[in-house]
Every structure is written in C-alpha cells, then in structure tokens.
Design a protein around this nucleic acid. Structure first.
Lengths: 123, 123
DNA sequence: CGGGATCCAAACGGATACTG
DNA sequence: CAGTATCCGTTTGGATCCCG
C-alpha cells in the first residue's frame, strides 16, 4: 500500500469530484453548453441541435446552467419575443474538463476498435 | 459567429464526450475507482468506504468497471474465499480527467463560498 | 464475506396538449 | 417561439432477505 493517498487529501478530492459531477455530470449538461458555444442560442434551435432531448429536460438543464452561472437567459422584448441563451465567462472554466473528457473519450473509442479488430482477426 | 466550431469536428467531439460520460459519468463510477486506488480492494471494505452506496449498486458498478477494463476481479480460493478488486493499468488513463474534475470542483466550491460571503457582507 | 433475488417507492423522462 | 402542465410508463435504487 505504498501508494495509499492520505485519507484527508483523498476525502477532499472526492468531495471536489462529487461537486464537479453534481454540477456537470448530468446526461445533457455538457452537451447543452457545447451546443450554445457552437452558436445555437435559441430554445428550439437547441432542441433541434441536441438530438434526443425533450423540451422538458432542456428547460430544466437551462435553468440549472443559469443558476450555476454558466449561462445567461436574455429576453429581447419585441414582436415576437426572442429568448436567447448566452454563455457567461464562467463557462470557459470548464475548458480543461471538456478537453480531458473529449480526449479520453476518443482514446477509449480507439481502444474499443482495436479490441474489436483483434477479436475478429483471431476468433 | 466568429467562434463557431466546424460542425464535423464538433459532432465528433460530442460523440467522444458522450462516450466518456457514458463510461465514467455514473454517479459512483469514479468514486469506486478512487476508493480502490486508495487501497480498498474488498467488496465490503469498498461499501464501508464509499458512503451511501448499496451492495446492489456497488456490485453493478464493479461489473461495469471490469467490463470496461479498469478493474480486475481476483478470487483467492481459500478459507474463507477472498475476492479482491485491483486496478488495471488502463485506469491510469483517467488521471487527466480526474485531475481536471477535481481541480474544477475545488475552484467551483471556492467560487460558491465567495458568493456566499459577499451576500452575507452585503445583505 | 461477497454478493444475488425480490419487493417496492421515488425519480426520471417521453408524449402530448396547451398557453402567452 | 418558448416554454409549462399533465399523464404515465420506465428506470433507478434503497431495504431486506437469502445463499454458498
């Protein structure tokens, strides 16, 4: 057990991890952020862009994002009324997390493909 | 829309992100990995360590981890039988993700504390 | 000790309809 | 367009008992 992490440090790391997962670990959270970053700022546009999300769920995710300071809901009163969601600077703090997840996801997929190829080559 | 990501690249990033979240985005997945890394290798030890996890859920998570190549289930036949879960090298590939999440979680917590302090200072 | 089987309540989430 | 409300099936997961 040479590598055992000191319990204190470990527990606080776990706490931080849980906080992070609680905020951004939802099934759709990061996808919505990415979609907004990608230029989709309107509700129905977002729903069309994010495949499989329902209005109810999207609505809930947007509320969470707003509450957590990632997104600002901007209402332009006019005819018709236009609602736009824009990313706040705080959303940029997620860049490292996003990069890490995407890189890992790509690597993982490549690993799966290799395993699959090998199992076909040697049945 | 200067910053708009090319759609192709964006979509594959999202795919990678989804893959990653599917594998490690579960409520308990990363916590179990950390607990094993921390030296808890037995089933009941893990359940005692990871506060709030039930045997059923832990059992399911361990199976997933095994199937994804993070963990090896080792059975030592003896009296009594001892089952140990050990991390495989592939689990180390998560280090960047883990670090990013923990750092972000800590920063986020600090931000929340500041906001709270300010709202107390200026009611 | 290391789980699997079962039961059950609560949460999640889709479909649809509806509103301003 | 931008959601909300309602209904309702599905899934999740806790509690408990049980077994080798």
């Amino acid at each position: 057990m040479i590598n055992k992490i000191s319990t204190e440090k470990c527990k606080s790391s776990i706490k931080a991890l849980e906080d992070a997962m609680y905020v951004i670990g939802g099934k759709w959270t990061l996808r919505v952020i990415i979609a907004i970053k990608d230029g989709h700022t309107r509700f129905n546009d977002l729903q069309r862009t994010i495949d499989g999300i329902s209005a109810k769920v999207l609505s809930g995710v947007l509320k969470d994002l707003e509450q957590n300071g990632f997104v600002k809901r901007k209402v332009d009163i006019g005819v018709p009324v236009v609602v736009e969601y824009e990313l706040l600077p705080y959303a940029e703090s997620l860049q490292d997390v996003l990069n890490a997840l995407v890189s890992w996801g790509e690597a993982h997929r490549n690993k799966l493909i290799k395993v699959q190829e090998m199992s076909i080559a040697q049945p």
